[in-house]
Design a protein around this nucleic acid. Sequence first.
DNA 1: GAGTGGTCTAGACCACGGG
DNA 2: CCGTGGTCTAGACCACTCT
Lengths: 243, 243
Amino acid sequence: MGEATGPDFRPLYSQIKALLTQRLAAGEWPPGQALPSETALAQEYGVSQGTLRKALNEMEAERLVDRRQGKGTFAAKHSAARSLFQFFLLVGENGERQLPESRTLECSAGKATRDEQEVLELDAGATVTRIMRVRHLKGRPVICERITVSTALFPDLQRCTAGEVTNTLYDMYEGRYGVTVVRARERLRAVAASEREAELLELSTGAPLLEIHRVAFNINKHPVELRISHCSTAHHYYLSELD
Amino acid sequence: MGEATGPDFRPLYSQIKALLTQRLAAGEWPPGQALPSETALAQEYGVSQGTLRKALNEMEAERLVDRRQGKGTFAAKHSAARSLFQFFLLVGENGERQLPESRTLECSAGKATRDEQEVLELDAGATVTRIMRVRHLKGRPVICERITVSTALFPDLQRCTAGEVTNTLYDMYEGRYGVTVVRARERLRAVAASEREAELLELSTGAPLLEIHRVAFNINKHPVELRISHCSTAHHYYLSELD
DNA sequence: GAGTGGTCTAGACCACGGG
DNA sequence: CCGTGGTCTAGACCACTCT
């Protein structure tokens, strides 16, 4: 009957899900790799295939795994599609989606501010790496953003961001640091463009910008990145589906 | 084996779901009313309880029905909680949620503009009812919004919005007109406050405001309301969960 | 106690992907 | 061809709600 770790009064499938998520977070199946089949896992845990299926289906709904008939179940992996549809909600007038190109302005390390420390749940005095960049859509500068991550979690990020341009930052977090971003919380406000932002985005000072304050979380629900973006919404809008 | 209406190559549970949704949309079970039990419906359609359960569970995920152990399955009904958590995403600094009070400024009927006609999928020359109102949170004026609906779908809305203040507009759509809003799409931009908005919201002209362009849909996926809100984000932010 | 939805099981068959 | 996940079934038992 496959005893777990102790008495647990949640449904079986929910316990199985927690165990599988734990193994996933521990790196037992790196992003993109196949998990054992349903039947194998069911046998391993001593439960029916139906129970195991319910656990895996919920994990798929949370985008922790990818399931495909005839192929198998795979640990979630970042892709351009995922960045585009899950994490980049600024779309063009006609609704078309496109990932922006990025130009890094600055990249430096320093002591976390009180705000950064709290949001990223860091120890007092921890070192963070900050990236300032401008992002372009169809040749136009549209976004001005400042990204903050823990230097301990992402060492040498400065050097990495210099050369590579092809992939998104989240691809790099996953590929080079083994950190997969699965969820994010965004807080939106309207703000006035500062003098510098106005210059970078080719607008006038005081022009209204959409501020996106994003905290990104890894599979363990720990915050791993703080990103504050100021976006010109002259030719784009932020799409939010309420359902 | 319970023939449906014709040859259909989707999975059984998906066909059942479509049939149940259709009956729900037709008003067979008004908001809040109980549907027959799983066993009864399974027998009616000649499928197993498991298949029927899968259909109902998906409908619950889409918030078309409410299911509670020991009680039954109920047609979705609007509630303060639903308005608050599904449709009102402007929250206070400390993350607390609260529904705003509304003060109607104007309410009039007229010919739909080209934009309104397209968004609401109306015939050319259709009549619409428009409401202008200011909404307050904790005594402060925070939102300035213009609402447009089809007059044919919501007759006499002008008279209705005059007196009643207790409930939300969506409660009224449901209670008086039998229209349940189940989904919405919002497009967000940063805009500058007009002179009038600045006055109403007690800000200076040109101050940055968050524009929310919302289209609300009924259970049949038809657009039933257009709402453009201009929000002061001095003491509130728009919360968007990306998962 | 009777009735509801929730969990769990075991097994059959189907659809898909790849050798 | 085999192995994978997807569908469908039938039945047992549990947890919750109301009378």
